[in-house]
């Protein structure tokens, strides 16, 4: 498996300063597959993607993408890798000072020397792929949340990446846009044959489009499996996630070091 894996994490630990976010993560994502990484808010999902794209480096362990160590790359090698990588940011991250057309054209213009007419055709093809041809003159401020996400998707696939990273593509969308995005992502990854990693907390929609799922909680991988295995899983982690239960192995409360009774001055009453 390791010879054919496009992305591999070996004993990866990461902390922001003192605060440990990921602990000893091992995972492997085969070429051409679609993998979801699920976890609650703040569980370190975005951080995981940032490790893959080399925006942050692990304190320990190895992150290997396409056979190369990301954590050891020079900035030139990193940029080389990123040219074959597309990322859909959680809120789209469209360039607010550029029109829809210029946003989608941005990576094409930066990385190729194609003539204007060719750039134009490519942009229209990408916009058609996300079903938004005709919006090219609009500015990002004029788009709805669902539309910006789709434009951002068109921008991310502009150079036909070999690896797509999706950061919570379903968050904050109405059910119709959500269905549209889910369908699009599935269609695009099938058509382009890209390796895809999606981090999300939306179990229902992701189980329908991915090949494999990892569950992350408290900085560790607590469960994994194919969608069918996940649906049938007896793991309390998976169960809590799939059925959206408030109580279970994942706790809602932030781990405080003092008790509430102490904090509000009632500690002595119990002593």
């Amino acid at each position: 498996m390791s010879t054919d894996s496009f992305i591999e994490f070996r004993n990866v630990s990461f902390a922001y300063g003192e605060r440990s976010i990921l602990k000893n993560i091992n995972l492997s994502i085969p070429r051409g597959r679609f993998v979801a990484i699920m976890g609650g808010s703040g569980s370190g999902k975005t951080t995981l993607l940032r490790l893959i794209s080399g925006q942050v480096s692990p304190q320990q362990g190895e992150v290997i993408v396409d056979g190369k160590h990301v954590e050891k790359m020079s900035s030139r090698e990193l940029f080389e890798l990123r040219r074959r990588m597309g990322m859909l940011f959680q809120f789209g991250a469209l360039f607010t000072d550029l029109s829809v057309f210029d946003n989608v054209a941005f990576p094409i213009r930066e990385h190729t020397h194609l003539p204007d007419s060719m750039v134009h055709d490519l942009v229209l093809m990408k916009l058609a792929a996300v079903g938004l041809r005709g919006t090219e003159r609009l500015m990002p401020a004029e788009l709805s949340g669902g539309m910006s996400r789709r434009i951002a998707l068109a921008r991310a696939i502009a150079l036909d990446p070999a690896l797509m990273l999706y950061d919570e593509p379903f968050t904050g969308l109405d059910p119709i846009s959500l269905g549209a995005i889910a369908h699009l992502i599935k269609k695009l990854s099938d058509a382009l044959g890209t390796t895809s990693v999606m981090v999300t907390h939306d179990v229902q929609h992701s189980l329908n489009i991915v090949d494999y799922v990892y569950f992350v909680a408290n900085g560790e991988i607590v469960a994994e499996g194919t969608p069918d295995e996940v649906r049938a899983s007896a793991s309390p982690w998976v169960h809590q996630f799939v059925y959206g239960e408030a109580d279970g192995p994942v706790h809602l409360a932030y781990p405080a070091t003092t008790s509430l009774a102490d904090d509000i001055g009632l500690g002595d009453l119990h002593a």
Binding site: S53, Q55, L78, F79, E80, R82, R83, M85, M87, F89, Q90, F91, A93, L94, F95, T96, F106, P107, E110, H111
Partner: peptide
């Protein structure tokens, strides 16, 4: 604002400094 809305991150992930 470009930083706060991840536009600068998006740019550098697109291999543009």
């Amino acid at each position: 604002l470009m930083k706060a809305t991840e536009q600068l991150d998006a740019m550098s992930v697109m291999a543009v400094n």
